[in-house]
Simulated assay, not measured.
Amino acid sequence: MMSTREKHPKIHRIALVDNDPRALDSLSAVIASKVPTAYVVWTATSGCEAIERCQDANGHVSLLILDMSMEGLQGPATCRRLRLMDQRMPILGATSFSINSYRDKLVEAGAQGLVGKENADQLAQIIMRMCNGEVMEGFEPPALANLRISREAETTPALTVREEQIISLCAEGMLDRDIAERLGISEATIRKHMQSILRKLNCKTSRQAVALWVRSNAL
């Protein structure tokens, strides 16, 4: 005789973050076809959008799958910001590039695992395991990662989401006018944010700040 738990398995809510619409469609298809106890409740195409969705009470999910290479806030920087906000939500990094390119930075950023996108069966298995509370080897549980990063943040001036977005775009080689157009704000506002960034990072020039940001976030 089947138990009540077997009759009514827990249904897991999944969020996907990737700046490539085709990747979002592919990941959604994998979950729909290979993870019967999970479904995608929302998607985001940038780190900033994901942060906004997670701040919404209706945005809570059982697992967030996060692309590593995005415009603006990269995967590790987005993960760190999300982990500071949430001590329960598991975060799984996903990449089409070498796992070794991001693993250490993602561990530091408070994720619970990292997987390649190319193997659908492996991806589905890891999603199911993480939805059930497992953490990949070498990664911390969400609560421990949140505690560690929160303590680190107490001694390091934190950039705002907008400041992180601006310096990330600077690191991609964009000029003030291009960033202003992309974000829909004035160049004067960009310069004001950059002054705040320089002060927080204890840098004298934008070039120094960008170099420090790149080293810290593996852009």
Rank of each mutant, 00 (worst) to 15 (best):
H60W: 06
H60M: 14
H60P: 06
H60C: 12
V61A: 05
V61H: 10
V61P: 01
S62P: 02
S62M: 09
L63M: 10
L63F: 09
L63C: 09
L63V: 01
L63H: 06
L64Q: 06
L64A: 07
L64G: 09
L64V: 14
L64C: 12
L64T: 09
L64P: 11
I65A: 09
I65Q: 06
L66I: 08
L66A: 02
L66W: 02
L66S: 04
D67Y: 00
D67Q: 02
D67R: 10
M68T: 04
M68K: 07
M68L: 14
M68P: 07
S69E: 14
S69I: 11
S69C: 08
S69F: 01
M70Q: 08
M70W: 03
M70E: 11
G72V: 00
G72H: 05
G72P: 00
L73F: 06
L73N: 08
L73P: 12
L73V: 07
Q74A: 14
Q74T: 13
Q74V: 14
Q74I: 11
Q74Y: 06
Q74N: 15
G75E: 08
G75F: 00
G75C: 02
G75Q: 03
P76T: 03
P76M: 06
P76R: 12
P76C: 07
A77V: 09
A77Q: 06
A77G: 07
A77L: 11
A77N: 00
A77F: 05
A77E: 13
T78G: 10
T78K: 08
T78I: 12
T78V: 11
T78L: 03
C79I: 08
C79E: 07
C79K: 11
C79W: 10
C79Q: 07
C79L: 08
R80Y: 12
R80V: 12
R80W: 04
R81M: 14
R81D: 07
R81Y: 02
L82I: 10
L82W: 09
L82E: 13
R83S: 00
R83A: 02
R83P: 01
M85V: 10
M85L: 14
M85Q: 01
M85T: 02
D86P: 01
D86A: 08
Q87C: 10
Q87N: 14
Q87E: 15
Q87P: 13
Q87W: 04
R88M: 12
R88K: 15
M89G: 02
M89S: 08
P90T: 09
P90Q: 02
P90N: 03
P90W: 06
I91P: 03
I91N: 02
I91S: 03
L92K: 07
L92E: 01
L92P: 09
G93K: 09
G93N: 08
G93H: 12
A94K: 09
A94R: 11
T95A: 01
T95L: 07
T95F: 04
S96E: 12
S96N: 14
S96T: 15
S96K: 13
S96G: 15
F97E: 15
F97W: 00
F97R: 03
